[in-house]
Simulated scan of single mutants.
Amino acid sequence: MGKGRRDKVLLNTEQRRKLEEISRNGYASAKKILHAQVLLMCDEGEGATKKWTDEQISLALNLHRNTVGRIRKRFLEQGEQPALNRSQRKNPPVPAKIDGHTEAQIIALCCSDPPTGRAHWSLRLLTQEIKNRNIITEISVETVKKHIKKNELRPWKIQRFCIPERDLARFISQMEVVLDLYSQLHSELSPLICMDEASIQLTGHVFEPIPLEPGHDAKVDYHYTREGVQALFMFFDPNRGWRRVSNRDHRTRVDWAIEVRRLLDEDYPHAHKVKLVCDNLNTHNIASLYEAFPAPEAHRLARKLEIYYTPRNGSWLNVAEIELSVLSQQCLDRRISSVEELSTELAAWQQERNSTTSKVIWHFTTDDARVKLKHLYPIFEPQETGDSNASF
C-alpha cells in the first residue's frame, strides 16, 4: 500500500451515508466534520472511488500524518462515534491554581503602588512579585495575564481626566457665556475679537539645505542652531475675516497691554466696545493696562474693552486657536532663523489671509452643548417632547 498505510478502513453503505451527511450538512462541529472527511478518504471498501495515502490525506486536509493515523486507529478499535468525537481525558482535569481568595490577592497587588524605581506594574514584574510574596509559588506570565484581563485591569495604562468633577459647574457656566456670545450679532461699533498667544523657537541651518530637483526630494540636515524664542499674539475677527499677528520678545502683562492698545486705537479706532475672547491667563486682565500705562490712559482703554474668558480646559472655544493652527501649517512649518525674517513672513501671511477675508462660521450653540456635552452638566434635565415651550 502507499506510504503510511497500516490498517484498512472498510465502510459499509450505511456508515458511508452517515459520514457524507455529517461532512456536508454544516451543523456539526468543525472537528467532527474534519474527522468524517478523514474516514471517508481512508475508506478502501467497495464504495470508495479513490485510494488515498496518509500523506495525501494530510496534505489535502492540512493535517499532520500522525493525526490521520490516530483517527483511523480509533475507528478500527473503538468504532464510528469515538473516531468522530474528541477523545476523552484519561486523567481527571488539573484543579485551578487560583481560587477566589488568591485572585483577590492578585487584584489587590495589581491595584497597589509598584515597587520603588518602577513607574507601573508590568506582567513580568507582577508575576515575580506574586512569587516573592508566596501568593502562588509557581505561576506563569500567561496565567497572570488571563486573570488580569478577566478583571479588566490594565496597570500599565492611565486615563487622564480633563475636567475634574468639582470644576464641572464652573466650566459649563463659562462655556455657555462664550457660546452665547458667538451666537449674537456683532457690528463694526461692537466687534467680536478672539485673541490667543503662542511661541515659536527660531532655528537656523548648520548646513545649507539641498533644494528640490526633478527626481530628488529637498534635503535638510537634522542639526540646527537655536536662535531664541518669539511670542506670537493673534487677534482674529471671525465675522469680518480679519486677523493681525505680531511677534514680540516676551509675553508679559506689558506686552499684552501694548498689543491691546494697538487693537483698540489702530485696528478698531471707531469701535465703542470691543468684545475680546481670550483664555484665562493672569496677563489677560484689565490690571495689565494699569501696569503698562498711566491711570487715565489705562482707564480710557478699559472702557472700550469687554473681556470674555474661555474656561480652563476649554481653549477649543477660542476661535483664534483655529487661526493659529492655520498659521502654523501654512507659514511656520519650517526653520526661521531671525526675528526680522519671522516678522516679514508673518506680515506676508497676514496680508494674504486678509485679502481673502477667510472667516470662521461657528455653529456650536448652547443648546447643542446641552445635548452633546450633557455628561458635563452636574444636573441635566432633558426637554420634554410634548411641550414646545420647555427649556433647559
Results as ranks from 00 to 15, higher is better:
R300M: 12
R300L: 04
L301H: 09
L301R: 02
A302C: 02
A302S: 15
A302Q: 09
A302P: 02
A302M: 03
R303P: 03
R303D: 13
R303F: 02
R303E: 12
R303N: 15
K304I: 01
K304S: 07
L305C: 04
L305F: 03
L305V: 10
L305W: 05
E306V: 06
I307T: 05
I307W: 00
Y308W: 08
Y308L: 02
Y308F: 14
Y309V: 08
Y309A: 07
Y309Q: 03
T310V: 10
P311I: 00
P311T: 03
R312T: 13
N313T: 07
N313H: 15
N313L: 07
N313A: 13
N313R: 15
G314K: 02
G314N: 05
G314H: 08
S315E: 09
S315F: 07
W316Y: 11
W316R: 07
L317W: 03
L317M: 15
N318D: 11
N318K: 04
V319Y: 08
V319E: 12
A320D: 13
A320P: 09
E321W: 01
E321D: 09
E321S: 10
E321Y: 04
I322Q: 10
I322L: 12
I322V: 11
E323S: 14
E323H: 05
E323F: 00
E323D: 14
E323K: 08
L324Q: 12
V326N: 08
V326Q: 11
L327T: 08
S328T: 12
Q329H: 15
Q330L: 13
C331G: 03
C331L: 06
C331V: 06
L332W: 09
D333E: 12
R334E: 07
R334Y: 05
R335D: 01
R335Q: 06
S337H: 11
V339T: 11
V339W: 12
V339S: 14
V339N: 13
E340K: 15
E340V: 13
E340T: 15
E340I: 11
E340P: 06
E341G: 01
E341V: 05
E341N: 10
E341K: 14
L342Q: 02
L342D: 06
L342C: 04
T344G: 14
T344S: 14
T344P: 00
E345T: 02
E345F: 01
E345Q: 14
L346D: 11
A347E: 13
A347L: 06
A347G: 07
A348P: 09
W349K: 04
W349I: 10
W349F: 12
W349D: 00
Q350F: 01
Q350V: 13
Q350G: 03
Q351V: 07
Q351E: 13
Q351F: 11
E352L: 08
R353H: 05
R353E: 04
R353F: 06
N354R: 09
N354V: 10
N354Q: 08
N354L: 09
N354I: 10
S355L: 05
T356V: 14
T356C: 04
T357Q: 13
